[in-house]
Nucleic acid binder design. Structure first.
Lengths: 182, 182, 182, 182
DNA sequence: TATGAATGAGTATTCATTCAT
DNA sequence: AATGAATGAATACTCATTCAT
């Protein structure tokens, strides 16, 4: 996450793990296998919980907020929050990983949110918008924040508070798609 | 932009440029110098125009929309749109470039937007929000889109239309920070 | 010593050492470091013994001969005898090494000899000559021989016998600076 | 002479000559040809005069001194004095040049001196010594001085005066091989 | 199971050489 | 005649991978 795949030396990984260079090889047959394991391990938990929120009942407005808060919270852990940056960086070098990440994580999460938005439009809470587009708009700032925190955000002298960002975003977005008052 | 700094071989750059391996070296003393030149060249034009929009007159609401549209349009050119992805990827390996990119591009653009938002609040067009936070919220989706298009977006079977994304975002955001109707 | 620093390929060093190309790099971080190590290792022993002979007692004439013989004998080992040629060749490319070689080896040795000659003049064995100049004159042929043997001397069809050279030189030189018989 | 053959870039030669890189190539078909030309040009004059002194008449003692002084004086010109250092350095990389240098310059000069010494022994001026060995002993310090001045001698804080060196050497050497007084 | 010495494929970089202008 | 842009062979250096201990 710090330097990308190519610029990360296996020996540095070993040192960071507190073992010798040769030990890494015992557990991972190749550098690429180690990389895949890191990504897999990090997104596993995320995958599991995403869909259970889609099928809940209650106000779509509240469920959407809950899902976004869950994603934002998950990405707070640097081991998870660094993954989007990593995937974005390595798309060109590991197309298959990127593809399955896109399908298993991005698409799935997007669809879940689009579904909730669809429900919200149906019950009159939201004004009629393209659900997929709206799902992007509600998630992208959250992902961007995670990427930002793990990259250029380092040079922010006065970094944005993640909670304030999250809540202001939710507030603004939900106002923005709220059905017009009659 | 495709593979990142380390995974891009100088010979591939040469081939792409239609010259021989040695020719690249004639023009750029090192791989890093070539990298810096690419980034510099790409963000130059962007730097120039950002601030001229800050100081305009007229409705803050319209000027904010114009600025966001300008950024979005600039990022449509793949030579510019790939830069955010590249900078995000290489932060760890080229801290100084990242730092100046953050300062010269990100910060400046953010401040310009925050200023317009501040004006909007003052004249009663926008409800009172943290201007910096709001500036993040209005730009982040645009940047995220650029990063997305140049990375995981490739695997989208049904990619989002950039114009629809931009306009829906602006519409939703501007509704979201609009002052409450009396 | 054979081809000089630049013309010596690291791979040839590896082959000569009976290891693979990469192995050299494990032990020496750079070609220059390897070079420095070679020189350091070669002149170490020489450094140690030079001064112990300066402080001896007995006839300056005999002690000077002993020191010259010691230097000549040390230079007989090709790993040591090649160093002067190497240093002379690489002065322009490794000024710091050359400087410390000059200081630690050349100067020290010269001073030791000058001191003995000074003692010889004082006790009437030698006629009054400039001790530094005389020290040069007594050592230079010995160094020159070492350089010669490791360079152009190769093309001598009838090479000079080192022992004969040494003894004839000592004989001639000592006659040459002997105090005039009363 | 400064950096040796390999470490000297053709472009630096061009700059030193006040012409462009391409111009050097017009005059010398290759780097090696340029090198050969430099050496050839430098030793040409030396070659011519060496033998005319061998065949002179008069005291061998004086003629030997004259020849040594001539060699020493020639080597005072840095363009000539640097040649021995250069040849010594590049023996391994240009065996043929080294070989002809050895034959045309070193051997010829040595033979001339040996001949004079032989004459000196015959006429009773010199005591019986091996003429070749003695020729080495009378020339080596002079060559060594030239090499020294163009290499490690640079680091001498108090450099030896070439004239004093030459005269002291001649004096000491001629005393050293003088026939014993009856 | 853990180690680290040894390996060699891959790549940036240097620079002599070519040649069109 | 002089130039300098373009080339590519040569080589130092990096580092993933292998494997004996």
């Amino acid at each position: 996450m710090e330097r990308g795949f190519a610029a990360t030396r296996l020996e540095d990984v070993a040192v960071a793990a507190g073992v010798a260079k040769g030990t890494v090889v015992v557990y991972f047959p190749s550098k690429e296998a180690l990389f895949r394991a890191v990504v897999h391990q990090s997104i596993g938990p995320l995958l599991a919980k995403t869909e259970e929120l889609r099928d809940g009942s209650g106000s779509p407005r509240l469920r959407l907020a809950e899902l976004v808060r869950f994603i934002a919270t998950s990405l707070r852990d640097p081991r998870v929050g660094g993954i989007p940056k990593l995937m974005v960086s390595e798309v060109g070098n590991f197309p298959d990983m990127a593809c399955s990440f896109h399908g298993d994580v991005c698409q799935r999460s997007l669809q879940a949110q689009a579904e909730i938005i669809r429900q919200g439009i149906a019950c009159g809470e939201f004004r009629p918008v393209d659900p997929i587009l709206a799902a992007h708009l509600v998630t992208d700032p959250i992902i961007m924040q995670a990427i930002w925190r793990n990259s250029l955000g380092r040079y922010e002298c006065d970094p944005v508070d993640p909670d304030a960002y999250l809540e202001t975003h939710l507030d603004t977005f939900l106002r923005g798609i709220a059905a017009a008052p009659t």
